[in-house]
């Protein structure tokens, strides 16, 4: 199992190198935006990976409330942290791209605001995990995760009504939509490699969480033994 995981890490690193090469050298320069458009190959895959992580977090939280097993709680904790990281990358690369293209760093549009609110919700989720005591953490965090997940579509709907500037989905639908096939290829390589990086980080963080739980249990056992003597 461990060897398989190490092989997967090596594969991920290889993929990351290849997808970076694809994004920076193979993909053609965009006509109107120029080289700055290449941030697209990092921005969108990060958003996708963050979404996957938050979905894992939600599912793990539901499973935890149902089965009360520490494994799914550890997975929830791991996916929330990794998702936060990718969500932060999205929020940083977004304005860097928006400034030269739209002329502004930020706008209160549906997708930007939803991402920001998502980020805020997960900050509060991680704070709750940090500040709550002992055995209660898991249940409280799982409850908050479900609240956050329910909130996101409502946020999206409300801001959509408010106003929208973010480009509508480029791929699929519409007459003028569609990417250059070479761009699409570079994009999918990056999507794949970012997803793999997300999985690697989640697995590592999950194992760390399990180890910490083990250490705590051992400490508690030792303390109990010492007390009985």
């Amino acid at each position: 199992m461990k060897q398989l995981f190490i092989a997967f890490i090596v594969l991920t690193l290889g993929l990351l190198a290849y997808s970076t090469y694809q994004a920076l050298y193979v993909a053609p320069t965009e006509q109107t935006m120029g080289d700055v458009q290449r941030i697209f190959y990092y921005h969108v895959p990060s958003a996708w990976t963050a979404g996957v992580c938050f979905l894992v977090n939600f599912l793990a939280s539901v499973v935890y409330l149902w089965k009360r097993n520490t494994a799914s709680d550890a997975l929830a904790a791991a996916s929330a942290e990794v998702g936060m990281t990718f969500c932060t990358i999205v929020l940083i690369t977004g304005p860097i791209w928006a400034r030269p293209v739209w002329g502004i760093w930020w706008t209160w549009d549906a997708r930007l605001t939803t991402t920001l609110v998502l980020w805020l919700i997960y900050v509060s989720y991680l704070m709750l995990r940090r500040f709550s005591a002992g055995g209660q953490t898991q249940v409280l965090a799982a409850a908050l995760a479900i609240f956050g997940f329910v909130d996101v579509p409502i946020v999206y709907m409300s801001i959509r009504w408010f106003r929208t500037q973010h480009p509508s989905p480029v791929m699929g639908g519409g007459e003028n939509s569609g990417l250059d096939p070479v761009m699409l290829q570079a994009f999918f390589w990056n999507l794949l490699s970012f997803t793999c990086v997300g999985i690697v980080l989640m697995v590592l963080r999950y194992r760390l969480q399990r180890l910490e739980e083990n250490v705590e249990a051992k400490h508690a056992a030792v303390a109990l033994q010492g007390g009985s003597r």
Binding site: V117, L120, S124, M127, D151
Partner: peptide, 13 residues
């Protein structure tokens, strides 16, 4: 810290 992020759509409305 917990309430405000979740309440953002309600406050906006």
């Amino acid at each position: 810290l917990l309430l405000f992020p979740i309440s953002i759509p309600a406050v906006l409305a």
